[in-house]
Amino acid sequence: MTEAILKTKDLRVEYRSRELGQEMKRALKGLNLEVRRGEVYGFLGPNGAGKTTTMNVLLGFVNATAGDAWLFGVNVREPIARQRIGYLPEQTYYYKFLTAEEILRFYAKIFRIPKADVERRIDAVLKLVELEHARKRQIKTYSKGMQQRVGLAQALINDPDLLILDEPTSGLDPVGRMKVREIILRLKNEGKTVFFSSHELGEVETVCDRVAILAQGELKAEGQVAELVRLHQQPNLEQVFLKIIGYHESNDQLTRNRQAA
């Protein structure tokens, strides 16, 4: 079997509620995941299922209450575990007073990319995300789609072996979505591992080798899309997802929706 480069074992995260008398909130209840080298892994679940919490633990933003997580065999509590990953947050958050070129140079410095390679790398990622023309403009002048592409560029600056993408197509127009999808497929063909969360199930079906479905902090299903569809006897991933998270739509409602459509 191919080596697991992202692994969690019995991962539990509990938050203390700020209100008196409230119970502890259990965001993750013993999550076990293994993502293998070279695969595109879709991380699905309804809002509040624990997807972002899992990513926060993997990126060291939040400490697990119990259990452990590793990237490339290094515990995620160690900053060096993040040396070979690229991360794209759901929304773009960058220093707006910097230009795309400057922000990439800053992150390249953090990764200690040799000076000889920096400019070549910046040129390559800006070309990939089609932002060469705007490289000297401050990020505050960018449109949302352009900012998302800067996000993708910074996630790729260190030539990562693992990409963690948090809803990478959220808020993008159809062209932007298609471009992001193309980039993910291209990275997959280059042997990169991609771990991404998304609510776009059609997109997940297209690009993912395996998916995990999370609900209420627990892993409800994991496997290849075709395998899950067959196992749950549903026509597509969307129906599998709805069935697994326990969403039942009455037949009447379904009929009404179809008629309305």
Binding site: F61, Q83, P89, Y93, Y107, I110
Partner: peptide, 13 residues
């Protein structure tokens, strides 16, 4: 402004 997230997702303590 949440610029902390992409920064701390790098090898920075």
């Amino acid at each position: 402004q949440r610029t902390l997230f992409p920064l701390l997702a790098k090898p920075v303590t």
